[in-house]
Amino acid sequence: MAKMTMVQAINTALRQEMEKDDRVIVLGEDVGRDGGVFRVTDGLIDEFGEQRVVDTPLAESGIVGTSIGMAVYGLRPVCEIQFSGFSYYNFHQIESHAARLRWRSQGRYSVPMVLRAPYGAGVRALEHHSESKEAFYAHIPGLKMVIPSSPRTARALLLSAIRDPDPVIFFESKALYRAFREEVPEEEETIPLGTSQVVQEGKDLTMVAYGAMMRPTLEAAALLKDRDGIDAEVIDLLTIAPLDDELFTQSVRKTGRALVIHEAHRSFGPGAEIVARIMEKSFFYLEAPVARVTGFDIIVPLFSRENSYLPTVTRILTAAHKTLDT
């Protein structure tokens, strides 16, 4: 057991999988000598050499397009896009090819690649460094979209993502990279993609969140308990697509009240899908309208105002009380 930051946990996952499987290749901008701008790939080049930890030219479409070719050949490329806000350059390769080659070739080929990218606000960065556009990827048939919420889930999910036979978009919260340390077991641990987790059991209210929003959500849940004696059940989605609706369906049927929290924009965001699933599967169990606490439908402001954009514990509590009071 070792206490790790999320950066260290992801680095550990990459290292352990690269030791085990020579098909795994890490590529991207500054991932080699520099160890990545967030140091996620730190030291990998020394251990595995330039053939397996590749500093590429500055070209996101090139990184993803060549990763697709490598994956078709039978390698397991894990490419890093330096910030998810620059992944629009490669969006075309993901939507038009990574997600489709298995289908287009009727199962002859698959694209077992992982695209890692830091996402989200909260680190006082420049424009294009703060967005949460997971819905873009979650909308694409043929893709999996994963967002860990902690060092331990990051290590376990990344291992699953690398081993997955299909392309996986793996978003890492910049705000969580060094936010806290957590015990990450030495022995290998995976979490199956497409499964959510109940991280806190409760009977009064269901709270569904993921990624960086797990922290304010859990904090709000603790305050609800301490101040008001309310038992919230908190669910960490972990995989956005394919969405596991089983746990939150069970939970909502028990609590009758639900709150969805994400930092992505509200309209057409993941919360819209979650609320729709609740309507489809649990409508007659509901005691109150399902609420959403999300980023606003505005461009993420520059950092002096980014904390006003992000869902806060206060906003989550306000929405929770409104739901509970209905």
């Binding site: 479409s61 090139g62 397009g65 060549t66 070719g69 994956a71 078709v72 390698l75 390769q93």
Partner: peptide, 13 residues
């Protein structure tokens, strides 16, 4: 778009 796939295949080779 397919040019990059060929480069990836060749790179893997």
């Amino acid at each position: 778009s397919q040019l990059l796939h060929a480069v990836g295949l060749a790179w893997a080779i």
